[in-house]
């Protein structure tokens, strides 16, 4: 095939790819641009795309007026906390399922996944009432527990698929070498599974960060993460677009960066291995 021909083709597909990519990415880009406008410029028609007085004052106002840092801290604590508790439960479970499977291991794994498919409205009312009676509403501990339970099946599942790739003979060798189960996991399994564990943490931090059913229903301020913070901008007046944009940019920027790193794991984690 002639090189010139494929070069032309490559140029066309490149243009198409970039066009489509920019269209899909545009809302995020537009949000970021708006966050640097004044409120007046933000609602101005015709809109200004690049040539306006770039200002960072919205970011300052967002922090002053609605205490962005508290919500951001909560988001970090809830997503990291729930993921770490999840690892503590999931690593031994995934070890057992991958290296000492029994007759019912597969059923157990599938059952765990199926708990993930329960619609939250089926559990909302009792959980809400239990939390109210146990004074867990609006507490970080309560939210960490909910997010942990929500994501535990995915954490177990992902670790299981990663552990599966480690040959069992290596763990048996450690056993022959006199390692106890604890040392087998700490000295041999965990170091070998570091990349898998890291991907698992990454994806679950993202999922917990963006969780917007339980956080909206069980928290208001003290333990509320950024999802709730942003929802407070839903008041109908259109005067806060620049601040909304600044707050939103702050809320999604860290997770967008993490997300871009984890795109490969995303497929594995969210399809439960059904697509390879």
């Amino acid at each position: 095939m002639a090189r010139a021909h494929s070069l032309r083709r490559r140029t066309i597909t490149t243009a198409a790819c970039w066009l489509v990519g920019l269209v899909i990415f545009f809302p995020i880009l537009w949000m970021a641009v708006t966050s640097f406008k004044t409120e007046l410029e933000a609602v101005e028609i015709p809109p200004k795309f690049l040539f306006f007085d770039w200002t960072t004052e919205n970011y300052g106002v967002v922090q002053e007026r609605s205490n962005y840092l508290l919500f951001a801290t909560n988001s970090i604590l809830l997503s990291l906390g729930s993921t770490l508790v999840g690892l503590l439960f999931a690593i031994p479970a995934a070890w057992a399922m991958a290296f000492a499977p029994g007759k019912r291991t597969k059923d157990l794994l599938l059952w765990m996944l199926s708990t993930k498919m329960m619609p939250p409205v089926g559990a909302l009312i009792p959980i809400y009432l239990l939390f109210r009676d146990l004074h867990l509403l609006n507490t970080r501990g309560g939210m960490i527990a909910v997010l942990f339970l929500l994501n535990l099946p995915i954490i177990i599942w992902m670790l299981f698929t990663y552990f599966k790739e480690i040959p069992g003979e290596i763990l048996e060798a450690a056993r022959m070498d006199g390692a106890t189960l604890w040392r087998e996991i700490v000295y041999v399994l965990a170091p070998m599974a570091v990349p898998g564990i890291a991907s698992t943490v990454l994806l679950n931090v993202i999922l917990a960060w963006n969780e917007a059913f339980w956080t909206l229903n069980l928290t208001t301020t003290d333990a509320a993460p950024l999802t709730v913070f942003i929802a407070s901008y839903s008041s109908p007046e259109g005067l806060f677009w620049a601040k909304l944009s600044a707050a939103s940019t702050l809320a999604i920027a860290p997770i967008l960066v993490l997300g871009w790193f984890s795109q490969k794991q995303l497929v594995r984690g969210l399809t439960f291995g059904a697509v390879k």
Binding site: E169, I170, A173, V188, M192
Partner: peptide, 9 residues
């Protein structure tokens, strides 16, 4: 072991 089962790390 058949696969040597060395600790790769």
């Amino acid at each position: 072991f058949q696969s040597y089962a060395l600790y790769p790390h």
